[in-house]
Design a protein around this nucleic acid. Sequence first.
DNA 1: CCAAAAGTGTTCGTGTTACACCCATGT
DNA 2: ACATGGGTGTAACACGAACACTTTTGG
Lengths: 231, 231
Amino acid sequence: MTKKTSRYKQKYARGAHAIVAVDVVVFSVINEELHVLLTQTNKPELKGLWAVPGALVAPDESLEEAVERVLTTKTGLKNVLTEQLATFGDPDRDPFGRVVSVAYLALVHADKHVLSTTHEYDAIAWVPVDRLPRMAYDHKKIVRAAAQRLRAKLTYSTIARGILPKEFTLTQMQTVYEHILGHPLDKRNFRKKILALGIIEPTGKYYRQQRARPAALYRFRSTKTEIVDIL
Amino acid sequence: MTKKTSRYKQKYARGAHAIVAVDVVVFSVINEELHVLLTQTNKPELKGLWAVPGALVAPDESLEEAVERVLTTKTGLKNVLTEQLATFGDPDRDPFGRVVSVAYLALVHADKHVLSTTHEYDAIAWVPVDRLPRMAYDHKKIVRAAAQRLRAKLTYSTIARGILPKEFTLTQMQTVYEHILGHPLDKRNFRKKILALGIIEPTGKYYRQQRARPAALYRFRSTKTEIVDIL
DNA sequence: CCAAAAGTGTTCGTGTTACACCCATGT
DNA sequence: ACATGGGTGTAACACGAACACTTTTGG
């Protein structure tokens, strides 16, 4: 480590370069609407502004580890599907210094909305993506980029797995698609397509609601996000 | 600046965080083959290893500006189509210290292959992407990710504009597609599709070769990369 | 028996694929 | 006249879009 550090200093003389943060855009569908998880900072300069959860990357930590740390310490969420979105690096995006942010997209199952009450510093809340409040830094831009990416991936990958519970009905799945995409889908065509793709399978169980026909429950065959033309 | 600096120090105490570099994967099609631009570093520790051109990001510089600086100072290329690819941040990816690299994809017109002879430090060369040499850092991984992204975008955007000359024949265009995608395409179907999309228009000029029928020259209608289903 | 949501097929039009010959030019 | 690469059409098929009624359950 000493040797590494000395070389480091020699080659990349510190103090004259940008440093790295991760910011995590966490989405979930709540009450049939796409929501994003926002925190309110207590820095006086940013009073009243909301931000997506984030943190600076520690020297010995990978980007993914930093994301996981942000999720567990700031939101109490675990085992969340994440993927890298893009990196935002305008020199003046952070008023406190030169911070380049690697943004991540994270999806939370509809059945995991309970937020940890152990978040230390900040207010935290689910906010509908099409009614974003005033936000700090360039976080509005980041959230919009994330929403756009989510919509795109929904149509050509099995990313919806991240936002659906482990077992779900076809109507739930369709509803998720409709609310993320923002337009209605044809029930028969949707079911035909999804079933023909073979990405999900029936569990054999049924979901009984109040007074209607029970719906068959399905699960995803694969646990990883696959690339297939869905819509 | 003083105020900003003091706040910066206070909030983000330096010296304990990762710093930011950009690396640029420059592609071109040469002799019907997809090539990537590589430099050979003269750092003794990396002797004989190739790397894509890159640099640390200066404190007052945006990521895009850093990319442009790398391209002009290290390769002599200007006005190149670039887009952000992904960010690579494993703690040990750089043996000299904690450097997180934002990788960019860049495309160079086939008629601009002449490299600046004014590159100061390094050897520089076009290398076929499927015959990559031993490379420094995680640059092989980065080049592969870039090639994959290029292939994908070719089929759903007009990104090919970046790699074609301003005026080109349909056969040239098809050849570029075939060599990046790695498989042959049907001539009639390709022409039908591209022309039906309306993304290119004839210039009225013709390209005369040795002893064959002259080919009509086309240009792209729009100067920006658009999203359309091409193949 | 009524309300509520689940489930199920067919038709039509459009887009994709596969495929082979004639054309314009230079030597 | 021949070699070289440019340019063109059609038929079979697959896929996506539009569309309405029957089934199962609980109250």
